[in-house]
Simulated scan of single mutants.
Amino acid sequence: MTPNRHNGTDDDAVLDAARECVLAVGVRRTTLTDVARRAGVSRMTLYRRWPDVRTVVGDLMTREWIAVALGAAPAPDPARPARERLVEGLVAGVRAFRAHPLFRKILDVDPELLLPYVLDRRGASQDTLLEFLADALREGHADGSVRRDHPVRQARAVLLVAQSFTLSLRTMTDDADSDLHAEAFLGELRHILERTLAP
């Protein structure tokens, strides 16, 4: 795979370094100097590309979240209804996010980083996921497995549901057997999505 380069900087190497730093000490204790050292580049090289740690972490989250979501999507299979594949991918995506080490670290140590994307504005990863969802919903409209409605609005509603389970599920599970309870709630998510999307 060709590295993602910007003015001679291997972005993925820098984002990998940022990921290691955040996993080790959290976002607030990570500096651009730390990231530069781990990436093997000068601090000034990073400053030309990213003005501060938060912008590096923003790009890191975009890369990681899109990879998690798309990695959870089932392989294309015209023999299966689009709704079945979409619901399966969404439930698997919520499960994958909850297990993702970077997501868990940010949720545990720096949850305020996620608040703007919940309360104020959409991020790049959310826009990418909305495009993916709208396309999947259009497939469902075409094969008759998804209730016909405005696909963009439907995609936004579906993402709101999935986000709430991703971000808030642990507030609804008990400490004892939390994994077992989480799986039961993911069953509820599957049911909600099926009923919402069924014609």
Rank of each mutant, 00 (worst) to 15 (best):
W50V: 10
A92P: 00
A18I: 04
P111I: 07
A142P: 01
G123Y: 00
A157R: 15
V57T: 07
D120I: 14
G89H: 02
V25H: 09
R147Q: 10
H100P: 07
R19L: 13
R29G: 02
F132I: 10
V56A: 11
V152T: 13
S42W: 03
F103K: 03
A134R: 09
A67P: 08
R29M: 05
L32F: 03
G40T: 02
D34N: 13
L159F: 12
T55D: 11
R104V: 15
R43D: 06
L160F: 11
P111Q: 07
V109H: 08
E88Y: 03
A142Q: 11
T128D: 08
Y47G: 00
G89D: 01
A36Y: 03
D59C: 12
H141C: 09
H150C: 12
T55K: 12
L129T: 03
L86I: 05
W65G: 02
E84M: 06
F97W: 10
D127T: 14
R49A: 13
S145T: 14
R29W: 02
R54F: 12
V68R: 03
V25L: 11
D52C: 09
A157D: 07
T45R: 15
A79C: 04
P111E: 04
A69R: 02
L90F: 03
L115N: 08
R83I: 04
K105W: 09
A17N: 09
R153Y: 11
G71Y: 09
E112R: 15
Q154I: 13
C21N: 02
P74W: 08
V68T: 01
S125N: 12
A39T: 10
A155E: 05
R156C: 05
R38N: 02
P76G: 08
P111R: 06
P81C: 07
R28A: 15
L23P: 05
D135G: 13
T128M: 11
F132T: 12
A18Q: 05
A136Q: 10
R83E: 01
T30W: 09
V146F: 06
G123E: 04
R148D: 06
R49H: 13
A24I: 10
G93P: 03
D127H: 15
P116M: 08
L23W: 08
R63D: 01
L159E: 04
V53L: 11
A124N: 13
V22H: 00
R49D: 01
V87M: 02
I66K: 12
V25Y: 06
L113N: 10
D108K: 13
V41W: 00
P76H: 13
D135P: 03
V41F: 04
